[in-house]
């Protein structure tokens, strides 16, 4: 192999490292970007979301803040309205409750209420998801909650490649972006990731536009629409289904707001069968929204619909119960089979 060919054997990164690389790049380029959160400085983020940034940027730009989410998320709103580009981290998305007003009444609405005179170019990052028995207050994704309330763009990466490109875009975006990263995908030593989120990642910067879903696997027989951790569970299900001759297409939404309905509709037009998989609560959420959008524009294409989500219960602690309510690849497999056989 030539030196160039050898170098092209790509470098792979975990999702957390890919996110950090994008943040670091943006911070080097733009003095106005800074990062605030609990345990983001010396600790490097409980889920490695800021690992190594303190050393390069110092405490002025990688700021540990008091456990005062209302104050510091609101301060991010205020600094953003002054034209800075803050990134503020909620350690777990579940804690949004203590600062909800700043998120949904201020951050998300100030642009609209000001008739566009004000804008809020900030990123709110938060860890989401279960699968490690952290129980009801530390395991939610709340994807649908943020996507439901108007005024926030909502990003959910599932691979390192996507995480980096989406983060570049999030920081450069002139609107508030909620960037939800799944703990199980970060590639942290103490919470092993499934195969899949660690991918080749180019060293140079690149953006992935919001509202462009990614077909992670092409297939003819059924469309599985999902996001976050469940992209990987759906891919695993698709591999198992392939052995029985069922060819599933797996669509990774990547952003909930804006939502790429076109990619979904095209796929359903091809397969006729729609399975939506979500790690959020089932009712009034992502699954219903996707199915409604297909029904509105492409009802004639729909031969079968299934949804797989967390039944409407808080996340229980004990393993057998958590495993019961968080969809796994077998749940996805059987939903696809039902849709296929319908």
């Amino acid at each position: 192999m030539s030196e160039q060919e050898q170098r092209a054997v790509e470098r792979e990164l975990t999702m957390s490292r890919a996110m950090v690389e994008a943040v670091a790049h943006e911070m080097r380029e733009d003095e106005e970007v800074f990062y605030m959160g609990e345990d983001v400085a010396d600790y490097g983020g409980i889920f490695d979301s800021t690992e190594g940034l303190l050393e390069e940027f110092g405490r002025d730009r990688i700021m540990d803040v008091p456990i005062s989410e209302t104050a510091y998320l609101g301060a991010a709103v205020g600094a953003a309205q002054e034209g800075m580009r803050p990134i503020a981290e909620l350690m777990f998305v579940d804690f949004f409750g203590v600062a909800m007003d700043q998120i949904y009444n201020q951050m998300a609405k100030n642009t609209y209420m000001s008739g566009g005179a004000v804008n809020v170019p900030m990123v709110l990052t938060a860890a989401v998801g279960g699968t490690y028995n952290d129980a009801a207050q530390h395991s939610q994704t709340l994807y649908g909650t943020f996507a439901h309330l108007p005024g926030m763009k909502v990003v959910v990466p599932s691979t390192a490649y996507d995480a980096k490109g989406l983060m570049h875009n999030a920081i450069r975006d002139d609107d508030p972006v909620v960037y939800l990263f799944h703990k199980r995908l970060m590639g942290i030593g103490w919470m092993p990731a499934p195969d899949g989120p660690k991918t080749p990642v180019p060293e140079e910067e690149y953006t992935i536009p919001f509202g462009s879903a990614d077909v992670k696997r092409e297939g003819e027989d059924a469309t599985v629409v999902t996001l976050g951790l469940h992209v990987h569970r759906a891919l695993e299900a698709a591999d198992a289904l392939a052995e029985d001759g069922i060819d599933a297409e797996v669509i990774d939404l990547r952003t909930l707001v804006p939502l790429d309905t076109e990619t979904i509709h095209e796929s359903v037009a091809k397969t006729g069968r729609l399975v939506v998989v979500d790690e959020d609560y089932q009712s009034y959420g992502v699954t219903g929204e996707i199915i409604a959008s297909v029904a509105e524009d492409g009802l004639a294409d729909l031969e079968a619909v299934e949804r797989v989500a967390v039944p409407d219960v808080p996340l229980p602690y004990a393993r057998p119960m958590e495993n019961e309510v968080v969809p796994d690849s077998e749940d996805i497999e059987s939903a696809v089979r039902s849709a296929h056989d319908a």
């Binding site: 192999m1 030196e3 792979e12 490292r17 092993p192 660690k198």
Partner: peptide, 11 residues
């Protein structure tokens, strides 16, 4: 070993 970031063959 937690993660490999390079594959065999990479420079």
């Amino acid at each position: 070993v937690v993660n490999w970031f390079a594959r065999e063959g990479r420079r």
